[in-house]
């Protein structure tokens, strides 16, 4: 995981496995939804606001202060969300193997978005596999990233 983000962001990173956090519809997390070839949500990438903002900012070399401002405000701005969408897009490579259904990123949502698919909560509740990592990005605030497989 650290190697993945190190290569993507071009910065020093560290990651350690942690217990998955509770995710609510309060906007404190951002979720990437991945569809299989049948159009079903088959996996999620979850990020708490600090990680989504830090990863989104660091990808485009935006100062850490911009990410901190978003965290203080309690929501990720459009620019950082767009960058985090690209992080999630690249993270599809973590989900796809020659022996599993092909998954593609469908969309990225704050958990308080009114159009967040209800199916997301079903996937979270009934996940067959869920891993979460505390991730440090050099020069940015720490956060948590999770991978959820339906």
């Amino acid at each position: 995981m650290a190697e993945f983000f190190g290569a993507l962001l071009g910065l020093g990173t560290a990651a350690s496995k942690v217990s998955p956090a509770q995710i609510e519809n309060d906007g404190a997390h951002v979720i990437g939804t991945y569809h299989d070839d049948l159009g079903r949500i088959a996996a999620l990438v979850t990020a708490d606001l600090p990680f989504a903002a830090s990863a989104g900012a660091s990808l485009a070399m935006i100062p850490a202060s911009a990410a901190r401002d978003d965290v203080k405000d309690g929501s990720i701005d459009e620019n950082l969300l767009e960058n985090f969408r690209e992080v999630c897009n690249v993270a599809a490579s973590l989900l796809n193997t020659p022996h599993t259904p092909h998954l593609t990123l469908q969309d990225v949502w704050a958990t308080d978005h009114p159009d967040l698919p209800v199916e997301v909560w079903d996937v979270l509740a009934g996940a067959s596999k869920r891993r979460e990592f505390a991730v440090t990005i050099e020069g940015y605030d720490d956060g948590r990233l999770g991978i959820v497989i339906r």
Partner: peptide
């Protein structure tokens, strides 16, 4: 022509 993509499976 080179691809730069998150699609990296052998197929």
């Amino acid at each position: 022509f080179g691809f730069i993509t998150s699609e990296s499976t052998p197929s």
